[in-house]
Every structure is written in C-alpha cells, then in structure tokens.
Amino acid sequence: MTGTAAQLRRMRDLAVQIMHERDPDALHTLVLAELLRACDAEAAVCKEGDWQPDEGAMSIVTAPAARSVFDHPQARRLIRIGRPFAEHYASTGDSAPRQADALGRLHHLRDVRRFTPGGRFAFGIPLPGVHSPVRGYILFRPDAVFGPATLSYGVEVQPLLVAVDRQRVLLSQWRAGSADVSSGCHDCRAPVPADAAPYGLTPRETTVLLLLADALTATAIGRRLGITARTVNKHIERIYRKLGTRDRLSTVHRARLSGLLSTPCPSHRESRELRTAL
C-alpha cells in the first residue's frame, strides 16, 4: 500500500469514528491532529469563516516545538487574514486544495510567505459549499513545500472533510436548539431537546433525523451528508425502529413531542436556515 493510500485509509477510519462522536466541538481537534500527522505539517488550522484580522474563532493543533510560535497574537492575525487563500477562493469560486506558493505566483504576489507565521510554507484545503469560500483547513511547514503527494492527498481527503464538517454543523445546530429554548425565549414552542442517547440514536442518526424534520428526501439528505440514499434509508429505518414509528411524519412528530427536536421561533428560524444551508 502506498503512503497516500495508507493516509487515506486512516482518515476514512477516523471519519467513521467521528460519526459516533456526540460532541461537535471535538470533531475539529480529531481531524486537525490527523491532518498534521498525515501531511507532516508543523501546524494545522481550521478556519470557520470570512474573518477579520483581529477576531474570529479558529481551531489550531501544532507540534509541541511550534506551539509558542502559533500562540503569538501576530501569528494568529496572519492566519485570520488568510492570504493568499482568502483572496483566491473568494474571487474565483475555485474549491480545489492549493499550495500558497502556487497561488502567490497565480496572483502575482512576490513573497507569499510574508503572509504566514515565520515565513512558513502553507497548504489550503477549502470546504466547498454556500458558506464563506475561505472556510476550510490550512497546514503549515517551516522548511519544505507541500509536494505532489500532499496535493493528491488533499484532493482525495477533501470529500471526507466536507462530510465531517456537515456532521459537525448539524450536531451544533441540534445543540443550539437546546440553547435557544433553555435561554428562556418565550416564542420557542417545544421542550428542551433531550439527549438522544436514551432513545438509542447515534450521532449520525440524530443528524439524519434533523434533516428529516426539514422534509428532505433521502437523496437530498445523502447529498448533505456525503452518503448514498441507500445508506440514508438504512438510518431512517433504524430511527423508525428506535422511536417506534412507521413513517416520516409520525417520526418527526414524536421526536418533537419527546424533545429530540425543537421548533425554532420566528426570530431564530432564519439564522437556523443559514446555519444548515450546505
């Protein structure tokens, strides 16, 4: 087995493991640690939005020797600016993984490494979708370009990263539904969503249930989650069995009555739709 094939197998195995993780905040750390190892990088960053230089959340995993470098405020500012990735992905609609040096030449930037902490080499893997086009992962190395093998790995692993991210977004949405109701909003018309564990629902089944509540077909759910319609139908069958229902309508109704799903109030519905649009 080639090195790239072995790395892909590790990420696939990790993706399967992640589908059983109930904490959406833990997913980034698991993926970043694997990207750091697979790409022989010094630091791996997940960028979650079209950020300003001095604000915006991000997740960073570093090798121990590089921790102090990437903890520095100026380093984090450079990462948030995201050059040349932010400019390229925002202006072109491109969604392919790219090396920073290659983008620098494409956009006539004389020294792209001055936009990275300590003049490091950088490699970006965007997460395609309707979210900000600079959303995705950036890897850093101090002393060597990311070569063809890493580029090939990035292309192959990108669909897995997208699927994991969609799982994280849906679990975060489910958690946010609980926060909206428990915050005391008088317009929310459902009990606080219960933990799915007593019903035996896995995190993956929970995300499928969320999309069922949005009246999506199995094919549409599959596109959202990066799986086949046949796999979606298997999840749906298990959800029916665990909730003791026979069809989608009764399943969503029972899930709402039991607190597994909340009904967002009008003030929250628009933001919820924006969060879940993929």
Rank of each mutant, 00 (worst) to 15 (best):
G222I: 03
Q7C: 10
D143W: 07
P24Y: 02
L171N: 04
R113W: 03
I221E: 03
D214A: 14
P24I: 06
P198S: 09
G259Q: 11
A179R: 15
D165M: 08
D13H: 13
A65P: 00
L106C: 07
G119P: 03
L212P: 08
R272H: 00
Q7L: 11
V130L: 12
R246I: 13
A122M: 06
P133W: 01
L212M: 15
R9C: 06
L260I: 04
Q7I: 01
C185R: 08
S91F: 05
D180Q: 14
I227A: 09
H253F: 11
I221R: 02
P142V: 10
H253W: 10
I81W: 06
A26I: 10
V31P: 02
P191M: 11
D214L: 11
V69P: 00
T276G: 00
E87S: 11
L170W: 05
V181D: 04
L27I: 15
A194W: 04
T2Y: 00
S172V: 03
A163K: 02
P24T: 08
F140H: 04
V208T: 10
L260S: 04
L201D: 08
P198G: 10
R224Y: 14
E270Y: 06
R77D: 00
T150L: 08
A86S: 15
D187F: 09
V208K: 03
P73V: 03
G124S: 14
S152N: 14
R223Q: 15
H186Q: 13
A220V: 11
M58W: 04
A163T: 06
D50K: 08
H28I: 04
H131E: 12
P73D: 07
R175Y: 13
C188V: 12
L274W: 09
P193C: 03
G136Q: 03
L35T: 10
R141E: 00
R275W: 00
K242C: 11
Q17G: 11
L243C: 07
V162E: 09
L32C: 06
A66I: 01
C188G: 01
I236W: 07
V112D: 02
D143A: 14
S250Y: 02
L170R: 02
T276P: 00
A190Q: 05
G147V: 07
D111T: 04
L225C: 10
L14F: 06
E273Q: 14
A277N: 13
A90I: 09
A75K: 00
T217I: 06
A90Y: 06
P73A: 04
A75W: 02
P126S: 05
P64F: 01
R80Y: 03
A190R: 10
E42I: 09
L249Y: 12
A179W: 13
D54G: 14
T29G: 12
Q74T: 07
L14V: 08
A149C: 05
P148E: 13
L161E: 05
D187C: 08
R76D: 01
L278F: 11
P97A: 06
G129P: 07
R238E: 15
S250M: 11
A102I: 01
H108Y: 04
Q17H: 14
R9F: 00
P53S: 04
A190E: 07
S183T: 12
G56S: 07
A6I: 12
T206Y: 02
R166G: 03
L225F: 07
G226N: 10
E48V: 13
H72F: 05
